[in-house]
């Protein structure tokens, strides 16, 4: 829930009816330099998740760079569909910006949930956080390594229970993994969880034999799990397991995990090129600031500057692969 909205509502509650005074819109001042009033950051997830933490940790630095306070607005629900739709309904004047897991949620909203928007309606300014699928098992499990997993699944595809989120990049990855290693994908014993957290807990607690979930979330549980396979083309976060390209060759097919960071309305870029430039350079300078990097690193949050071009390209590429595997994303 948003800080301001809550506080507002609180006041309404406390004063029991002077609500009207709060309903008055912010006084519109004469057009001057952007930004001349606070900027809202829409986070389409509830408090406490990665995007929320990222937005709140980055806000003080961006605030300083842009010269206006930022207000975080949490609009969770429906796998970010509600928050993304809400953001699209806000004016495209640069006073509402988005901090979200653009992939996989935007493609998922569009492909599986009849979202009232297209991918092209968004423009990503920077997606510094690029997660990846990690296949892991509990540290007390008798599964030794990825070869062991392949041998067992080849003999009987249902030999191991697999903790996974439905309609996720992880699901696409496990299917591609099965195809590449001669495992019958229809025979896999999938156990579906509603979120990455529960799926990771089930993996660490050996409730399921193996789990495929976003790798960064596994870091706090590192002592309780044994990594088996990283779905990326280079080693990540110090996991000792092989990568999917080491296992299946350089052209191994896989989908990137969550790509998280900052975005705006695509129409904002066209309508207000000068404002866009201001916002872009503020995010760039805040991302590159030493103080930001130290602070966010300590909280395991990403702050690398990738820029709009690379960010939008990566998002579009992920959306493309997900479109190819649309049948996997609709119900498990």
């Amino acid at each position: 829930m948003s800080k301001t909205l809550t506080r507002r509502t609180m006041l309404k509650v406390a004063s029991g009816g002077i609500a009207a005074s709060f309903a008055a819109p912010a006084i519109l001042r004469a057009q001057s330099t952007y930004p001349d009033r606070p900027i809202s950051v829409v986070v389409p997830f509830d408090t406490g998740g990665y995007n929320d933490r990222l937005a709140r940790a980055f806000a003080p630095f961006l605030q300083e760079a842009i010269g206006q306070p930022l207000t975080i607005i949490n609009r969770g629900g429906g796998g970010a569909l509600l928050g993304h739709s809400y953001f699209m309904q806000q004016p495209d004047d640069g006073y509402s910006i988005l901090c979200t897991s653009a992939a996989p949620y935007m493609p998922l909203n569009i492909l599986t949930q009849d979202a009232p928007f297209k991918l092209e309606d968004f423009h990503m300014i920077n997606l510094p956080s690029r997660d990846y699928t990690l296949m892991a098992t509990s540290s007390e499990s008798d599964i030794k390594d990825i070869e062991d997993v392949i041998t067992r699944l080849k003999a009987d595809a249902g030999a191991l229970s697999i903790g996974i989120q439905p309609a996720s990049a992880d699901l696409v990855n496990v299917m591609l993994f099965a195809d590449a290693n001669g495992i019958d994908r229809d025979g896999l014993r999938l156990v579906t969880y509603d979120g990455g957290g529960p799926a990771r807990n089930a993996t660490a607690g050996a409730v399921v034999d193996i789990g495929l979930v976003g790798g960064q979330g596994f870091i706090p549980l590192a002592e309780k799990v044994r990594p088996l396979l990283v779905f990326d083309d280079s080693a990540r976060d110090g996991w000792t397991s092989p990568t999917v390209t080491e296992l299946n060759g350089a052209d191994a097919e896989f989908v990137a995990g969550s790509q998280r960071g900052w975005g705006v309305h695509a129409s904002f870029v066209e309508k207000h090129p000068d404002r866009y430039q201001t916002l872009l350079s503020a995010i760039e300078s805040a991302s590159k600031d030493e103080a930001t990097i130290t602070s966010l690193k300590a909280q395991d949050l990403a702050t690398d500057w990738i820029g709009p071009e690379a960010s939008n390209k990566a998002l579009a590429a992920t959306a493309r692969v997900m479109t190819q595997h649309i049948d996997l994303l609709k119900g498990t």
């Binding site: 796998g79 569909l81 439905p166 579906t192 609709k330 119900g331 498990t332």
Partner: peptide, 16 residues
């Protein structure tokens, strides 16, 4: 939990 949507009558607020 298996990704099927039921009973929402197309209202996105009922997805959760």
């Amino acid at each position: 939990t298996a990704g099927f949507i039921r009973g929402t009558m197309g209202v996105p607020w009922l997805l959760d």
